[in-house]
Amino acid sequence: MLKLQDVFKTYEGKAEVTALSGINLTIGAGEMVAIMGPSGSGKSTLLNLMGGLDVPTSGQVMVGGKDLAKESEKGRSLFRRSKVSYIFQAYHLMPTLRVSQNVALPLHLAGVPAGEIAQKVARVLREVGLDGRTNHLPDELSGGERQRVAIARALVTDAPLLLADEPTGNLDTARGEEILSLLRSIHRERGTTIVMITHDHHAASACERLIRLRDGKVEDDGAVAGGGR
């Protein structure tokens, strides 16, 4: 599913910052992987590269057999539209759009017919348990509900890869547990490959595999004991 080979990422500025330094990784289809590491270890940069939001300074980022580093801006946008979906810690919902409109957004961008959009949106909202909240604005929802909207938006395109950047970071324990449980069921029932950044050991334990980063390098990569509960 995902293969990163000798990936380097540096940011130029007054002082050059190396975010990733020679990453080599392979993630198979249907895996659920947690990435952990201290602040500045390169977790978010790695996730951005996997989703084609950014390109490496050098190296290969192969997703579904396609090297994202060689893709144009437009090519990467089209790739994101169909092959990958995101969940952010800060949700990144459009504050002025209603729940159903937020979920429908990627389908509108892809030019999906209106009738099909309505069906798909209704289905995923039911799946995440928000079918009674379709006309609410994000401000009218709790943090957990907002993250469910973000998950519904990620599911609606049926993308095989789901990237989650600290999905429980802004939530209390109970709401966090609900989200993790939802992600696990998505993984189990849809076979979606999930890569999740987290600071939380409990969240990481929901995954089957844990990759630890430090100073832009893979420090440790292995199965989570008792993971994937």
């Binding site: 801006e73 946008s77 089209l78 994101r80 459009m94 957004l105 990627p106 961008l109």
Partner: peptide
Amino acid sequence: TLRALGATP
């Protein structure tokens, strides 16, 4: 957000 969801430039 739009760009992350696949909106082209």
